[in-house]
Amino acid sequence: MKDYIKYYAGVDIGSVSIKAALVSNRRLIATKLVASGASYKDAAQKVLYSVLVQAGLDAERLSGIVVTGLGSESAPFPARQISDISCQAMGCHYLFPSARTVINIGGQFTKVAKITPQGRVVDFLMSEKCAAGSGRFLQVIARILHVTLENIGPLSLQSREPVEFSTNCAVFAESETVSRIAEGARAEDILAGVHRAMAIKVAMLVKGVKMEPDVVLMGGGGEDAGLVLAIGEALGTRILVPEQPRVSTAYGAACLAELDLAL
């Protein structure tokens, strides 16, 4: 019986982490996430192997693979390549059919797309070569404050007096953070301030594509409760976040492999 079920994989080769998702009939069966490191090829092979092992499948049982993300060119296996904007849209669509606007805050870029009720992209915007609207910004600040990435969100939510950042530039914000520490600002207030500054940047992209609810936040940024709250406040709307925000683009890629759409 099991032989008649078809399986599809999506592999998202990002700058910070590489993700794989295994689906069958759009149902998520297994996921794997590893740090990208220096060899995207090895890591991509590893995550794909891992989801197959989790499901107890041989590679031959895969009916299709879609590879996406900044490093998709370096996929070490034959796969169809689709842009991460289309993949995140489709992943978002199957996770939240009511979604019309999807935000993806990744390590390198923030991407915002307007989508149709069928999960197709109508318009999109990406943060330019600027770290202030991406996960990299948070990493920089967390490093200065000696806070682990997982603790950024919970700590930020405790803030009572968020620090006001006068710059939207990640490089200047680094020195501004140092000055604020010197002035005695608390870590939670600095983090909440950073979240607000980022949210303003992200909100400008969202407004650029003319936001429509529901709004979904995916990517690593979705794991940061402080950031989710700040973006919701900046946009004045409820933000939906999937259970595993970092693998949702890989999930969308797997769904596209299964749909075999002509894009």
Binding site: S83, V121, F124, M126
Partner: peptide, 13 residues
């Protein structure tokens, strides 16, 4: 290389 994603997504759209 960085522009590839944008162009690709636009053409897919």
């Amino acid at each position: 290389g960085q522009l590839r994603t944008r162009v690709q997504a636009f053409l897919e759209m």
